[in-house]
Design a protein around this nucleic acid. Structure first.
Lengths: 257, 257
DNA sequence: AGACTTTTAAATGTCTGACAAATGAAAATT
DNA sequence: AATTTTCATTTGTCAGACATTTAAAAGTCT
């Protein structure tokens, strides 16, 4: 662990990197206790606040957890999928919003990955995944459901589909792709008709999974992708038209007179 | 932004969360400057070290960057795919190693996702992706290549394949899955014969992509998955046998006498 | 007047020292 | 023996200080 005080990266970043490497390489194992802040400060020849900044960086990545009191300290954290998923979703969401990824590109990626899970889910899904999907479909039919709640239920439905593949690595990766799209989906105002159409496709997917029909599942997912893209285009075109007409509304009304 | 001094989560974590939410919600936009540490300390009624710990947490997630000097400060960072990828790889790697995911499960997830990209890559790949794949295949044929270097070249080959799909969202997600498997792959000792076999499959994939043949690409990827799993089983069985025979080596040799 | 140099103010980076709060172990008490 | 109290350890937070970096502003020279 070589720390260079003149490095532009900053001491706390270097120290965080050194400890991170130790964790990744397996030199520090799960639930192992790191030296106390005072000892680390001594080892790295820096002050305690600097050490603390380094530890907070690692805590932000869920690599360590800290515990106060005697025999407390910083411990290497067991990174679970449930811990990692929110981070992936946050990052993916920001990536989409900051890199002006088009709706189509994000949608394509999402459904491409989801379709890849479809055959495995058809083969391996268990009763509880079907149960969740059934419940979410019922949820989606509620008349007083907000667009946000509808999208949230949509996410839950598709996560159950992916979970049916019984592969936690896939579930983790896909949850990021699916949930990250939710803000984009939330921008769409779902009419009663479009909801009915989506629910119909969801039902088709559910039936296909019940029948363990991989081909049908894949096809219905494809239909859903096409319909989602189309819906987004209609909604966004309408918004753009409204914005433009709003900007020139006075001349318009004058012409109309 | 309500900060509760008695919250067990800790002040710096709460403050980091508040700022993070502001960034995600769009209240703080890219390249916008946050108030100075002193001003933030004043606003949140905490000390500057506490504010600094919060900012370091955000920096660890690449949400902000800091700049020293007059008119410096903390700025909302434009999160690029290149910034986010290493974080995803780190997290995915740790998830695999800490949740004792079997080689087969990780392998299945990786190839499932990669096969999903194959048809798109066959349709859209450009000359430079083929060029990279050609170069990496040549690299993999070098006789003095270490196992680690062979695996690194393997990763580069498959990333080029995925990049051929021309969808940055897919590339980002897949890079995590592919690179995270590298430590597992590094555990395999590649014999000359197994390398030749892998290179042959890589070549088949390259040819299929050159011909824009989606079906062939998918099939060769499937062959590669099967072969990789088989190889891993052979290597790991051998290692286990060696370990067990080592543990009882004395009795064994006695019996042999 | 324009180009170059110096000054300066503002901001982060780091250090020192201190106290509060939590926590589990050990000692004291019932 | 069970319970309570004490106590040392460690993280969490604060206050104040100085070093370093940086770009704008002022000053200087041609």
């Amino acid at each position: 662990m070589k720390i260079d005080p003149d490095n532009a990266a900053g001491l706390s970043a270097q120290i965080a990197g050194a400890i991170r490497d130790a964790i990744i390489s397996g030199a520090l194992i799960v639930d192992e206790r790191l030296p106390s802040e005072a000892e680390l400060a001594d080892q790295f020849n820096v002050s305690r606040p600097t050490i603390r900044e380094a530890l907070k960086r690692l805590a932000a990545q869920s690599l360590i957890r800290t515990q106060r009191g005697a025999f407390g300290g910083a411990f290497v954290r067991h990174l679970s999928y449930d811990d990692a998923r929110p981070q992936l979703v946050t990052t993916s969401t920001l990536l989409l919003s900051m890199n002006d990824v088009s709706f189509d590109t994000a949608c394509e990626a999402r459904f491409t990955l989801e379709r890849a899970c479809a055959p495995m889910s058809a083969a391996r899904r268990e009763a509880n995944q079907l149960e969740i999907m059934r419940a979410e479909i019922a949820q989606q039919g509620a008349v007083d459901l907000s667009d946000e709640a509808f999208c949230a239920s949509d996410v839950a439905f598709h996560r159950a589909l992916v979970d049916g593949a019984q592969n936690p690595v896939l579930s983790y990766q896909l949850a990021g792709a699916i949930e990250a799209m939710q803000p984009l989906m939330n921008m769409i105002t779902f009419t009663a008709r479009s909801r009915a159409e989506i629910i119909a496709i969801h039902t088709d997917i559910l039936v296909a999974l019940e029948n363990r029909d991989a081909t049908a599942t894949t096809e219905h997912l494809h239909r859903l992708e096409v319909y989602t893209k189309q819906l987004a285009h209609v909604v966004m075109d309408a918004k753009r038209a409204k914005r433009e007409s709003g900007a020139v509304s006075k001349p318009d009304t004058e012409v109309a007179h």
